[in-house]
């Protein structure tokens, strides 16, 4: 009951948090478009994978945040290069025609998608291996006990298990 009550409250909290984040994004975007339009051009172009992920709305906030972080990690060096070359629309468009720039920006997002898919599988595999090793150890221990205590032991174990 308490858990059920908590869930709408948490959702409302999330909605407020998202609203605040959206507000700051709008402020930052507005200011960016006014003062650093070539940078904003590169930024919007580079953030396409993250925007697609947000629009798809998978419901996994963690994975969107991961995608955004990796995506930004790929975009920041490209923006650095833009600023290094003078931050003009001409330079920005030229960079957008460079496949390596796209590779840097989308590569981060691709890495995020790959890690989000692969890391849980790796963790699950490790967990399964550990569980199987533990089961084998327990079965070996059981066999040793049966060998030590004889056939009656198995019958008594079954009786004990059915008694429970």
């Amino acid at each position: 009951m308490a858990k059920q009550k908590k869930q709408p409250a948490k959702m409302a909290e999330n909605r407020v948090g998202q609203g605040i984040a959206l507000f700051w994004v709008m402020v930052f975007s507005g200011l960016g478009i006014v003062f650093i339009p070539p940078t904003m051009l590169i930024l919007f172009a580079g953030l396409i994978p993250s925007l697609v992920a947000i629009l798809l709305n998978t419901g996994r906030i963690g994975s969107i945040a991961t995608m955004l972080a990796f995506n930004l990690a790929g975009i920041i060096p490209v923006i650095g290069i833009l600023w290094d070359r003078g931050q003009t629309f001409n330079e920005a468009f030229r960079m957008l025609t460079d496949v390596y720039m796209w590779l840097a920006m989308f590569g981060g997002a691709g890495l995020a998608v790959f890690l989000s898919w692969a890391v849980p599988i790796v963790v699950f595999s490790a967990s399964e291996l550990q569980a199987k090793a533990m089961i084998a150890k327990l079965q070996k221990r059981r066999m040793k006990l049966v060998e030590e205590w004889g056939g009656q032991f198995v019958a008594d174990m079954k009786d004990g298990a059915s008694g429970r």
């Binding site: 930004l72 920041i76 995020a112 849980p120």
Partner: peptide
């Protein structure tokens, strides 16, 4: 289910590390 949770957490840590390192 636990692996999903741990995986997401590890990926998040990696993403933040990558962002900071890149910056």
């Amino acid at each position: 289910a636990a692996a999903e949770g741990y995986g997401a957490w590890i990926t998040s840590v990696l993403s933040v590390t990558a962002l900071l390192a890149s910056t």
